[in-house]
């Protein structure tokens, strides 16, 4: 492994067949660091904007988002089960279905808010709600693409694809819980 050369002037030859798995996972972790920074920046904007505005009116959370959250949690858990027992395809299908359900639920939540007359322009809290959920939603769509790819990619890439996609998907789940707390837990 090349990292071991940090200590030894001349380490053993790179023999680990899963060394490209390590590369994939490292790339994914770095990508998640960048995504984390994106949402950190949104958070700081949220906090500053909230503190400055005397007319800040928090929008109540659309009820359906409880179901959405549940769907995303189930999706994450079932993906983890699949990652550990890869013979049972059903778990992957469940994970994918729950992911799609989450997106559908989010679209519904948006429409619900719009029908109540809550738009980007007339309420700063709603503006952040739309921005944060849209940014998260786009990342979820990317995640669904990755989950779909697990069974499609060539056999030799499948393992590391699954590992990297799982990492990403769990991160998106955790990010979602954080966003819920930010948007509705602090009011």
């Amino acid at each position: 492994m090349s990292v071991s050369t940090l200590e030894l002037p001349l380490g053993p030859p790179p023999a680990d067949p899963r060394v490209s798995l390590r590369t994939s996972l490292l790339g994914m972790k770095l990508a998640l660091a960048a995504i984390g920074m994106l949402f950190t920046a949104f958070t700081s904007a949220y906090v500053v904007r909230h503190a400055l505005d005397p007319d800040w009116h928090a929008v109540p959370m659309p009820r359906i988002m409880i179901a959405n959250t549940l769907a995303l949690v189930i999706s994450s858990l079932s993906l983890e089960v699949y990652r550990r027992h890869r013979q049972e395809r059903l778990w992957l299908t469940l994970s994918q279905a729950m992911g799609v359900l989450f997106v559908a639920g989010q679209v519904f939540a948006w429409r619900q808010l719009q029908s109540r007359g809550v738009y980007l322009s007339n309420n700063p809290h709603a503006a952040f709600f739309y921005v944060l959920t849209a940014a998260h939603g786009l990342h979820i769509l990317g995640g669904l693409f990755a989950l779909g790819g697990i069974t499609v990619v060539a056999q030799e890439r499948r393992f590391r694809w699954l590992e990297a996609a799982s990492l990403y998907w769990h991160f998106m789940g955790a990010l979602w819980l954080y966003l819920l707390f930010l948007l509705f837990g602090m009011n």
Partner: peptide, 13 residues
């Protein structure tokens, strides 16, 4: 970053 951390040649500490 990934290249530097993971793809260095043998002996390239």
């Amino acid at each position: 970053l990934t290249t530097v951390l993971n793809l260095r040649a043998r002996g390239m500490s």
